[in-house]
Amino acid sequence: MKVWLAQHREALLLALRRLGAAPVNSLLSLLAIGIALALPAGGQMLLANALQLAGTTSAVPQISIFMAANAERRAATEIQSRLGKYGGVKQVRLLPREETLARMKANPGLRDVIEALPANPFPDAFVVTATDDSPEAMEKLAVEFRQWPRVEHVQLDSAWVRRLDALLKLGRTAVMVLGGLLGAGLIAISFSIIRMQVLTHRAEVEVSQLLGATDAFIQRPFLYYGVLLGLGGGVVAWLLTGAAALWLRAPLSELVRLYDLSLVLQSLGARDSALLLGFAAGLGWLGAMISLRQHLR
C-alpha cells in the first residue's frame, strides 16, 4: 500500500512537472477548457438563482378570493371563518382592502393613479393554499368558493406556476444539453493534449516498458495530467462564473426590483462547485484514458 501510494505521488509530481514545463501552453489549455465549462456552469448558476427567486414568490399554487367591492368587513370575517374550517384548505391569509391600498400606494408608478381615485377600489381578499394542489382539486375548490355569498371573483394562480415550472424545466434541459456537448469538447481537448504528451514522451515510455514498467505505471502520469487539466479547467470555469455573478449582481437586482421582487445573484453553491470540479476532473481523466488506449499500444 505504501509503495502504491508512493508511486501515485511520483506520478502526480511528474504530471505537475510536465504541466509546468510548458507554462504558456498549459495556461492556454486550461483557459480553453475553463471557458467551455463556464457556459454550462453559468447556466446552472442562473438556474439555481431562478429557482431561488421562484421560491421567494409563490411556487405553491394558490387560489385568490376577492370579495365584492361593497362587501362589509363582517362578510369577509365570515368567509375567513368558513375557510378556516373547510376541509380542503391548508392555509388562509386575509388581505384587507386598506393594506392592499397602502401597498399599491407604496409603488411609485401607481401612487398618482391611486390617489386620484375618489375611494378605495380594492376589495378584501383571501389567498388560499389547498391541501391538495393538483389542478383538478384546485379547480373544484374554485368552483365551490365562487358560490359563497359576497364573493365576487375567484382566481386560480396555478397557471403561472406551471409556466414557471415549464421554463425551469427547459432551462435545466438546456444546461444538461450544453453540459453534455461541452463535456464532449473537454474530452476531445484532453484526448488531443494527452496524444501530444505521449508523442513528446515516447522515448521515456519505450525505456520504461523495456525496464519492466506495467501499463498502469506508464499510464499513471498521463492520467494525472488529464485529471489536472480537467480540474484546472474547472477552477477557471468556477472563477469565471464567480466573476460573472459579481459583475451581473447589481444590474440584475435592479431589473428584478422593477418587478417588485428581490434577488441577490449568487455564484455557484458548495454542491454545484464540487460537482463542477468533479465533473471536469472526471472528463479530463476520461479523455486521457481514451487517448492512452489509442496511442499507448
Binding site: A6, V207, L211, G212, A213, F217
Partner: peptide, 11 residues
C-alpha cells in the same frame, strides 16, 4: 532510479 521506481522499491 527509474528501474527501482518501476519495481516499487522503498525510496
Amino acid at each position: 532510479m527509474l528501474p527501482l521506481s518501476i519495481a516499487g522499491f522503498p525510496a
